Simulated scan of single mutants.
Amino acid sequence: MTKTVFVTGGNRGIGFEIVRGFAKAGYKVMMGCRDEDEGNEVKEDIVGGDVHVIEMSLSNEQGIIDALTRATAVYGGIDILVNNAGVLCRDGVEDVSMGDVSSALQVHVQAPLTLIQQVLPGMKERGFGRIINMSSGWGAFAEGMEGPVAYAISKAALNALTLNVANELEEESNITVNSVCPGWVHTRMGGTDAPKSPEEGADTVVWLGTLEDETPNGKFVRERKEIDW
Rank of each mutant, 00 (worst) to 15 (best):
E171Q: 12
A156S: 11
V93D: 10
E61W: 02
T2D: 11
K124L: 14
V19K: 03
Y151Q: 10
D203K: 08
P112G: 13
E214G: 10
C33P: 04
I80T: 05
Q110I: 15
E223N: 14
T114P: 00
A142L: 07
W138Q: 14
T215C: 14
K24I: 03
N83V: 02
L169Q: 10
S103N: 15
N174M: 07
S102C: 11
P216Q: 10
V42W: 04
N133A: 07
Q106I: 03
V96G: 08
G10E: 06
G218K: 06
E38S: 14
A156K: 03
G129M: 07
E200L: 08
M1G: 12
A111W: 01
T69V: 07
V107P: 00
G127K: 09
T187Q: 09
R130I: 01
R224F: 01
K24F: 05
W207G: 06
S102N: 14
N40T: 08
G127I: 12
G49M: 05
L68Y: 10
A156T: 07
F128W: 15
G183M: 02
L81S: 04
T72N: 06
K3E: 08
V93R: 03
G129W: 00
N83A: 09
T8S: 14
K196N: 12
P216M: 13
L88T: 05
S173H: 08
P148D: 14
V29F: 07
L120H: 06
V19L: 07
D45N: 14
G21E: 08
N164Q: 14
D203E: 14
A67I: 02
S59L: 09
M98F: 14
E223F: 04
K43I: 01
Y151S: 08
E44A: 15
K124P: 02
A150K: 03
A152S: 14
S103E: 12
I18G: 04
C181M: 12
Y27C: 00
N83K: 08
W229K: 08
S135R: 00
Q110H: 15
V93P: 03
K43S: 09
G92Y: 09
G122D: 15
M98R: 10
K155P: 00
I65Y: 05
T4F: 00
N167Y: 07
I116K: 09
M189A: 11
A202F: 00
V221E: 05
I153P: 02
C33S: 12
V180L: 04
D95G: 13
T72H: 04
C181Y: 06
N159P: 00
N84W: 04
G32F: 03
P148K: 11
L163A: 12
K28F: 01
Q117D: 10
I78S: 02
F16T: 07
I14N: 01
E44N: 15
S154P: 00
A142D: 13
V206F: 01
F16G: 03
F220H: 05
A156W: 00
V180Q: 05
V206R: 01
K43Y: 07
D228W: 10
T2L: 11
V101G: 12
A23R: 01
E146S: 13
K219L: 06
E200Q: 15
D37R: 15
K124F: 06
T69H: 13
T192K: 14
N40R: 15
N217H: 06
K3P: 00
I80L: 05
V185E: 02
D203T: 09
V205M: 06
F128S: 02
I175L: 04
F22Q: 00
A166L: 07
E170Y: 08
A156H: 03
A85G: 05
E143V: 04
M98E: 13
V47P: 02
